[in-house]
């Protein structure tokens, strides 16, 4: 029997924090080469889902598989790369852009983390990819909002993970950078990466995400954007507190 393998497979996952249920019975399966938008309110369990996919919380029931592998072996292989929210980063930290991108390679290095020629080459390529080569020696605090995002995206690329998690990547980013980042994400998708993007920006979801995942304590719905991106699902996700959205004619 041929087992259909998904890049991100969340099976009936329930997560409890100090006796409170943050996520219950969440089920999700994303195949290779997809960009999925994760849509939900604050406190809807978005970050819990991210943590579960990265293996930072142990589900009380259910399981998460990455490319058919357990979280632990996925971590060992560096399969899941995470691009943090800007607020999570200490921008005064004494590291350069190149240093940060090199951190993506640590999982591939020996114990002393001495970069080899391959590591330097991949860091250079990743910087080139996000057009950050000229800023490689800047301290990370000396970058604009968009450049900061691109630096961390380059780290994710350098890690060579096939699953990318982006937490609110477009906040504090100008339109031009947002467009460039979306283009890059689409390129990565076409290479077979699986990308999960949590975002508030619902208009952009319908334009570049080929899948949408609705979350509110559990996963309410997921699937191809044209099928699930409906006013009804939005209402269920936001409990009717959502402003009306302009739908494209295809609805």
């Amino acid at each position: 029997m041929v087992q259909r393998s998904f890049s991100i497979q969340v099976e009936n996952v329930t997560v409890n924090y100090n006796g409170k249920t943050a996520l219950h019975g969440a089920t999700l399966a994303l195949g290779e080469g997809t960009i999925a938008g994760l849509v939900g309110m604050n406190g809807s369990g978005k970050s819990t889902l991210f943590k579960a996919i990265m293996g930072f919380v142990t589900p009380t029931s259910g399981r998460v598989l990455i490319n058919g592998l357990s979280i632990r072996s996925a971590q060992k292989r560096g399969l899941v790369a995470y691009v943090p929210q800007s607020e999570e980063v200490d921008w005064n930290f004494p590291v350069s852009v190149a240093d940060v991108v090199m951190m993506g390679r640590y999982g591939h290095m020996n114990l002393l983390r001495i970069p080899r020629a391959t590591d330097h080459r991949i860091v250079a390529e990743s910087l080139e990819r996000v057009q950050m080569t000229e800023f490689r020696n800047r301290q990370i605090g000396e970058l604009s909002g968009g450049q900061k995002k691109r630096a961390f995206l380059a780290r994710a690329l350098a890690q060579r993970g096939t699953v990318l998690l982006l937490d609110e990547p477009f906040t504090g980013v100008d339109i031009k950078t947002e467009k460039a980042m979306i283009e890059l994400l689409i390129e990565l998708r076409d290479m077979g990466h699986t990308i999960l993007v949590s975002t508030h920006d619902l208009t952009s979801v319908s334009t570049f995400c080929d899948q949408v995942v609705f979350i509110n304590q559990t996963i309410l719905a997921y699937g191809a954007t044209q099928d699930v991106f409906t006013q009804e699902n939005l209402n269920r996700t936001f409990g009717g507190v959502m402003p009306k959205l302009q739908f494209k004619k295809s609805q």
């Binding site: 930072f56 971590q75 943090p84 999570e88 200490d90 930290f93 002393l112 983390r113 780290r155």
Partner: peptide, 22 residues
């Protein structure tokens, strides 16, 4: 001297450190 870089990554971005299996 041995753990210099791991400790630095731990200080800078423990989330990333964990996600790559440290």
């Amino acid at each position: 001297a041995v753990l210099r870089k791991d400790l630095l990554l731990f200080c800078f971005d423990p989330t990333h450190a964990r996600s790559i299996g440290l």
